[in-house]
Every structure is written in C-alpha cells, then in structure tokens.
Design a protein around this nucleic acid. Structure first.
Lengths: 223, 223
DNA sequence: TGTACATCAGTGAACGCGCGTTCACTGATGTAC
DNA sequence: TGTACATCAGTGAACGCGCGTTCACTGATGTAC
C-alpha cells in the first residue's frame, strides 16, 4: 500500500512565483537598510546588496531600476513610521484636561517606542536627510515638512494657543520637530548602552517640557 | 646698453618651495570642500580632488595620507568657526540689562553672518556629522559637545537661572544648539533664495525667543 | 660669487579590484487547451 | 488529467571604467662649502 506523498523537505518551499519574487524584493530592501547602517546609501553598491541577499548582481534589476529607487521606497516606509508615531501621540490626546507633564511624557514614550522598534529606518532617515542622493533627500524633506504641518494643527488645539498666528504655530512645531529629530538621532546613537539611552530619554522629556512652558507663556510675553 | 633683466612673466611666480607646497595643500582642502558640497566626503575620490587641484593623483600623498585626514582638518577649521561664533555672541553680552529681544536678535545676527561667510564649512559639518567616516563623525560630535558645554556656562549667567541644576542648564543648551544646527542647515539650503533665507532667519529668531521664554518661566513651573 | 650635492613636490606608467550594466541563457512555474 | 507553450526570476560571461596605491623618475629649489 503506497503512503501519501510526503511533504517535500525542500530547502526552499515551493511557494507561488509571485510570493517568491516578493520575498526577494523584501530581502533587497532589508539588505540595503542593513548596509546603510554602517555606510551611506551613496557608498552602498548594488553588488554588495546582491551578495547580501544571495542573488547574482544582475538579478537585482528584476526588482528595482537602481539603488536610488530602493532608497525612495525605504523613505516611504520610514515616513509611514513617522505618521504612525503622530497617530499614536494623538490617540487619547483629546482629553484637554491632561497636565503638561502627562502630554509630554506620553509623547516621549511614543517616540522612544517607535525609534527603538524602527531603529534602522530612523537612522536611515536621519542620515539620508542631509547626505542622501538628491531625490531621496527631497523626499525626506517633504515628509518632515508634512509632519510639521500636522503637528501644527495639533498644537493649535492646546488651550492657550487660540490667538496664535499661523506663523507662530508653524515655528513652534518646527522647534519641536528639530528637537525630536535630534533626540531620535541620539537614541539611535545610544542604542545598546542603557545608561546613555535613559539619559537621552530624560533629556528629551525636559526639552519638550521647556518648549511647552515657553509656548504657554508666549503670547502674554509677545503682546 | 643692456636693460635690467625684466621680471619674468612666469605662469607661476617663483615662490619659495615651502610656500608653493602650502598653496597646493590649501588647494586640496578647498577642492575637497567644494566637491563635498554636492556629494558626501565618502563619495569624493582622491582622483577627483587631484584633478580639481590640477596635480597628478600620486602628488596628493605629498600632503595627506588619505582623504579622511583632509576631512579631519576641515572639521578643525569648521569647529574654529563655531568657536568664533560663540566668541562673537559673548562679546558685549556682559550687559545683563539687555532685553530678551536684543540678546536673541544679536545671537541670530551672529549665526546668520557666520553661516553665510562659512557656508561650505557649515554644510560640511552638518552633513558629515551624521554621514561622514567614523573618525570625522566623532570629531564633529565632540566639537558640538564642547560647544554645548560652553553655551551652558553662558546660560548660567542669565538672570533667573541662579537656582538651576547642572542637568537643566545642559538640557537647555542642547535644545538651543539643536535648534541652531537645524537653522544653519536650513540657511545653507536656502542660500541664494533671499525670500527663503529671510524666512529661515525670522523663524530662528522666534524659536530662540520661545526657548528663552520657556527658560525664564521654567523654575517657577518646575518648583 | 661659483660649484657640487641634497631635497622633495610633482610626474607617469602600471597594478589589481570592484563597480554598473549588457546580453543571451536556463529551467522552474504558470496557463491555455 | 495531460500536453504544449509562455512567462520570467535568476544565471554567468563579458565589457569598459574609475578607483587607491606602488614605484622609479625628473628637475627645480635649497644648502654647504
């Protein structure tokens, strides 16, 4: 009596073609991100990526036209993480009665969480923002600008900002974003050294509180 | 009657050897800085630099052991500019009676002046700070940390900060530095477009004032 | 001042290497009948 | 279900190029006597 055909112990399972292709594509994105941790995208070579993925260099072209295109997709992914961060900060922020300390603490918690979970993506954005190929750089600048804009609309809901000009709202959100971008860089830099990471986090909390104290006392000063 | 020997119309004047060497060295630094405006130091090649200077690639080694060494020297120059900036801000700052507006305005004026006059050096620092070869990156981080430290001692002289902890002083100066670094980047980016530059400048003034309003109201909040 | 020698910034040929990209190909997977 | 053909992810050889670095050299400038 013949037994039913055993599941083949294939080294790579017989997945549908589309899925296998998607896996290679994903592997290219991951390998590029990994290599860009120690170098810049500009110094990562197509051949290095192919080697890391385990394909022949020419197979790369089945998935992307150039490494710049890989970079642009990584920017999209990273900006998605940024959007998720903003969403998480907003969540529950409707309760206006919360204290300043609670608002800033929750914001920093969200930042810490996102940065630690998407470490390499944040590192990628921080670096390529100033050093990347022009199209990549431009995409990141645009994404951060959107982020500032959305943050400005959130800030406008803080009690006490009712009479603020649009310019002042934008300026405050730019100040917050520049502080957070610097903090994110330092967190990535401090990754693995718990003491340093804790200090960066504590510093971020204080900075954000200082900025918001400034904001709450702003109009009265300027009037 | 023989005329006195005419000054030779030499294409390159007969300077002493040491001086000619110094000129070539300077030309290498300048060429590297120029090339690093459009790329990263990591993607600038020794041969590109040699071509730009007008020497054969191998002559480079008469002056530097590697492009990294050129980068380290450029960092030294740029950090010197930073120190000069801090000195200029301090100059006359002893007059404690000045208003907040005057202090921040003078600080931003000094920043604008230094960034516009040392544009390529600031761009270099901004970029290589996150993207440069590790030794270059480390040198820049160290320089900025010194800058924060010195700024903290200046901040400690502002009336109203008498009771501040060392940590709070450092945090405030880090906040100011991160805002100024971002501003410097944006100024370099806005160079050539007078409208954009003016807006970055106005934004920087407001940011600094907001931060200082926060600082002046800080202890009373935190106590 | 004149001569003989030392120094050394810049030269030019040569090397081996990793690069991006082309091209014709292979062979497993997918599809039409 | 079985067969014949199409698709297409990955292959492997080959190309020309710019790279960093070596080496022996040249010839003007500098120095000792």
């Amino acid at each position: 009596v013949p037994v039913p055909a055993p599941v083949p112990a294939a080294p790579s399972a017989p997945l549908p073609r589309a899925e296998r292709k998607e896996r290679t594509r994903r592997a290219i994105l991951d390998a590029t991100l990994r290599l860009a941790e120690e170098q810049t995208l500009g110094t990562v070579s197509l051949r290095q990526v192919a080697k890391e993925v385990g394909i022949v260099p020419t197979a790369f072209y089945r998935h992307f036209a150039s490494l710049d295109d890989v970079g642009l997709e990584l920017v999209e992914e990273a900006l998605g993480a940024l959007r998720g961060m903003l969403r998480d900060v907003r969540r529950g922020a409707a309760a206006d009665l919360e204290s300043l300390t609670q608002v800033t603490d929750r914001s920093v918690d969200v930042l810490v969480d996102h940065v630690s979970r998407g470490r390499s993506h944040f590192l990628f954005v921080a670096r390529e923002r100033v050093a990347g190929p022009p199209p990549v750089r431009e995409a990141i600048r645009h994404g951060i600008e959107l982020f500032e804009r959305e943050l400005a609309t959130d800030v406008a809901r803080i009690p006490g900002t009712e009479g603020w000009s649009t310019d002042d709202l934008r300026t405050l959100s730019r100040l917050i974003v520049s502080s957070m971008v610097t903090t994110a860089e330092e967190m990535v830099h401090a990754a693995g050294r718990p003491g340093a990471a804790a200090q960066v986090e504590a510093d971020a909390r204080t900075q954000l509180r200082m900025v918001l104290v400034g904001a709450l006392n702003w109009r009265s000063e300027a009037d």
